[in-house]
């Protein structure tokens, strides 16, 4: 870590001086950004640019070489329980227990998060209905299609009302009506103060829905796209860093 300390300033996500390298080279170099309450931030970059690594460092799935991360003011590596309470994460390849049914999976997640049983049951039913999974409660997770599995993972991630939602290609495999209802749900949560960090290759959707972005390039190059930079990117969305920063 770089020695600079951060305090709980109420931000859903704060990243400072984040660096990460693998054997093949540097992937993230001194990345700094905040995600404010109500914001929807796009994480952009071509394949291998480091989007999943950055998300992993934020969610506690990758250990940064340097830098600090705070989710709802909590360090995911020093105070994982508090960070977990503030985070809802849908990975690109969601993890589900194949031996559990959809309802059992959500029940386990709500119990692990310490949610009150009746409230959790009501919220589970609402989320399943919203995602078009009503009626699939008794289906074993290993028998779900890719899209249904993703929807189950989304329901599990949103169940506890997290302040910070990190969605890694979460809209992939969702049918249009479900995707539209999910976006409406996310909008409602943003209006209530939650924030979204979204990785997606659907640039048109990202340009329309998100209010700012982080563009990652090869070798740890990155740029925060805000204000005029974001507007310029929205007019001609592209994942090539050199198109925007010659």
């Amino acid at each position: 870590m770089n020695g600079r300390s951060m305090t709980d300033d109420g931000l859903p996500l704060r990243v400072r001086g984040l660096g990460k390298a693998y054997r093949r080279g540097v992937v993230l170099r001194d990345v700094n950004f905040d995600v404010a309450p109500g914001a929807a931030v796009a994480l952009l970059g071509s394949n291998g640019a480091g989007k999943s690594t950055l998300i992993g460092c934020v969610t506690g799935d990758r250990l940064p070489d340097r830098g600090e991360v705070r989710i709802g003011g909590a360090d995911p590596f020093a105070d994982p329980a508090k960070a977990a309470a503030a985070l809802g994460f849908v990975p690109e390849q969601p993890f589900l227990y194949g031996e559990l049914t959809v309802a059992e999976m959500l029940r386990f997640v709500s119990a692990a998060r310490g949610m009150e049983a009746d409230g959790a049951r009501t919220e589970s039913a609402r989320l399943l209905e919203m995602l078009g999974l009503a009626g699939a409660e008794s289906t074993l997770c290993r028998e779900l299609s890719q899209g249904m599995g993703r929807k189950t993972a989304i329901a599990a991630a949103l169940l506890h009302g997290p302040r910070m939602m990190v969605l890694d290609e979460a809209l992939n495999g969702l049918d249009r009506p479900s995707a539209a209802r999910l976006v409406a749900e996310l909008d409602a949560r943003r209006a209530a103060g939650a924030a979204v960090l979204l990785s997606s290759h659907d640039l048109d959707f990202v340009a329309e829905w998100c209010g700012s972005g982080i563009l990652l390039g090869p070798g740890g190059v990155w740029e925060r796209l805000e204000g005029e930079l974001w507007e310029r990117w929205r007019r001609a969305p592209s994942l090539r860093v050199e198109d925007h920063f010659p």
Binding site: G60, D61, P80, A81, A84, F89, F95, A112
Partner: peptide, 14 residues
């Protein structure tokens, strides 16, 4: 274990 990351993200105490 295969569910290690999932359980840590759920905030299950170590």
């Amino acid at each position: 274990p295969g569910d290690d990351g999932f359980l840590r993200r759920l905030g299950i105490p170590a």
